[in-house]
Design a protein around this nucleic acid. Structure first.
Lengths: 341, 341
DNA sequence: CTGAAAGCGCTTACAG
DNA sequence: CTGAAAGCGCTTACAG
């Protein structure tokens, strides 16, 4: 069944014996139209349950009032909080949001950008897939429509980017461990450095240097995908060393939770013997025992700011200067590390 | 900045010195057009990076190729798996998906249905907000556009509904507890009975009756929202009884996890003294220790089936008979209950 | 094999 | 204060 009962301006005009133009103007509260007419039109429109066709409206104005969003994976809790922020902000400004998942596949991502253009979106919010090697498709898209990168970004794209202070966040996590007396801090990161992983690693290095702690390659571990499984595996590896670390900084909560599970299995006291810090404050971070110390990423704020800025660019008359907007994170200290006091 | 560089049929036609009609037909591989012309058009279209305006295309055909989806909360892992299924299936059929959150607010839900219509979606997939008392707005929407209910449904709406077998799933969870020797099984459910909660409760009752176990009102507990906090609180309440239960069936994983936390705090052996079963197989169900026995809801499948069916209805020439499609769930036995062997 | 024209629902200069 | 007409980008009967 296709759509039915579609009332248009035409029907209202016919019924009232006026022109379509008049009905349109009346509905849009044009000053030229008499109050009388406006009232008649408004009342009939209401009775007939007239719903303006935004589609037709936008057609003329070359606008769809739709924002396209592409994310690697909608299943991550963090991503869903960002989407919430985007949707909320878009709604306030009268935009709807089309969502697509690139499933961390560069080719799909390129196709999706293309489809977004076909659908005539007014702007695009993109979080890059992990395997994005070439940004050509993104650059090409940028020529057609305002585009803004968030979370997983690339400096190769000259557009506004909304990111969290990964480096600073990692620094504060590691600094926290140092300040609570830890000296031999392992890191679990990604093998193939994504932007996020690289920044977090840099923050880790800076913290060690700042506090004059020697960097030990043997406790810098990486894995392809930083899952709970791999967190366990790498932690087991750390536990097999003669000189064990006294803290583990995992760049995702999943890996940190894997680490905790591994430590518990080996009867290591957390945080006394080995403390653990994760990243992203996922739901599971308060399910695991001890509760996980982690970095809270304000996904909602990222979404709101990204949408806000995109909308600003969409409505600007001139090309705005691309900026990098950094959203602050918070270290949440829980039981997997010592309280600093 | 608004959109730029938009190549239309007009430009191609002008450049080639043919009519717009010819270009349109050539691009659509119309049999009337000569191979020669088709090739010229195709090649120029490619060079100019012509992107067909689906918007204009749909405008004529009264189609947008957009499916609207409204869910209570995009943040639930289960919901994200359903959305994945919907998006994947929609994509296959050339549809895009607009997502909105009702945040369990009936008024917002009604507004969103209205907005979906304004945006001219070709069909709507709706999971009702918890507080949906009146379905008037849904019924009204149904007059305008194909609509299908999934997960959180209502029998008051005469449309196709895709649901999981809540009653059967709960039955199998409780049966499992009984078969592993449990006799005094408490349930943690919702106070204000949502469709899901009610069905799960009925399954619980049926299992007890089937196995001739007396129903004891004192261990049937409810709370407004079945969070981890409330799971803890209600479990503490159970532990304060003279005769304690030997198993707890919580109708959500969160509440089940709260229950486990409370039991661990009281040094109760799980599952020996008290077993716990949850519902939904969330990410956290394998984070908690012992790992949670729970019901896996195939969200992806629900999404796929819902989208499939909606698309079928959208393209049907006659009104299809509404059906109720029940998706099977699976009990996943983990360490929070005994293995049945 | 190709083109001119109408039309999808709406807005908006231009006339009156 | 109101209407006729053009136009957004496309498709498709109707002619030729």
């Amino acid at each position: 069944m296709t759509k039915k009962n579609v009332i248009t301006l035409k029907e209202i005009a016919k019924e009232l014996g006026v022109s379509i133009s008049t009905v349109s103007r009346a509905l849009n509260d044009h000053p030229d139209i008499s109050v009388e007419t406006k009232e008649k039109v408004a009342s009939l429109a209401k009775n007939l349950n007239y719903i303006p066709n935004l589609f037709a409206k936008g057609f003329r104005a070359h606008k769809t009032n739709i924002i396209g969003v592409i994310v690697p994976d909608i299943g991550h809790y963090f991503t869903s909080t960002v989407l919430k922020g985007i949707m909320r902000e878009a709604e306030i400004h009268g935009y709807k949001v089309i969502v697509s998942e690139s499933i961390n596949n560069e080719k799909r991502q390129a196709e999706m950008l293309q489809t977004m253009i076909q659908f005539g979106v007014d702007g695009i919010l993109l979080s890059l897939s992990r395997t994005t090697i070439s940004v050509d498709s993104v650059l090409k898209t940028l020529e057609n429509v305002p585009l803004l990168l968030f979370d997983k970004v690339s400096l190769k794209v000259p557009c506004t980017q909304v990111i969290i202070d990964d480096e600073e966040a990692a620094f504060s996590a590691v600094e926290h461990l140092i300040q609570t007396g830890k000296k031999r801090i392992a890191i679990i990161k990604e093998t193939e450095d994504s932007y996020n992983s690289k920044m977090r690693y840099l923050g880790y290095l800076r913290a060690l240097r700042t506090y004059n702690i020697e960097i030990d390659e043997s406790i810098i571990l990486s894995s392809e995908n930083i899952s709970m499984q791999n967190g366990k595996r790498l932690t087991n590896q750390l536990l097999s060393m003669k000189v064990k670390p006294d803290a583990i900084f995992a760049i995702t909560d999943s890996a940190a939770i894997g680490a905790i599970k591994s430590l518990k299995r080996s009867k290591i006291k957390i945080p006394q013997q080995i403390a653990v810090v994760g990243f992203s404050n996922s739901n599971s971070s308060i399910v695991i025992e001890p509760k996980l110390t982690t970095i809270d990423q304000p996904g909602n704020k990222i979404g709101v700011v990204a949408a806000q800025y995109l909308i600003k660019e969409m409505n600007a008359t001139t090309q705005l200067e691309p900026k990098t907007i950094v959203i602050k994170t918070n270290l949440i200290v829980r039981d997997s590390s010592f309280n600093p006091n």
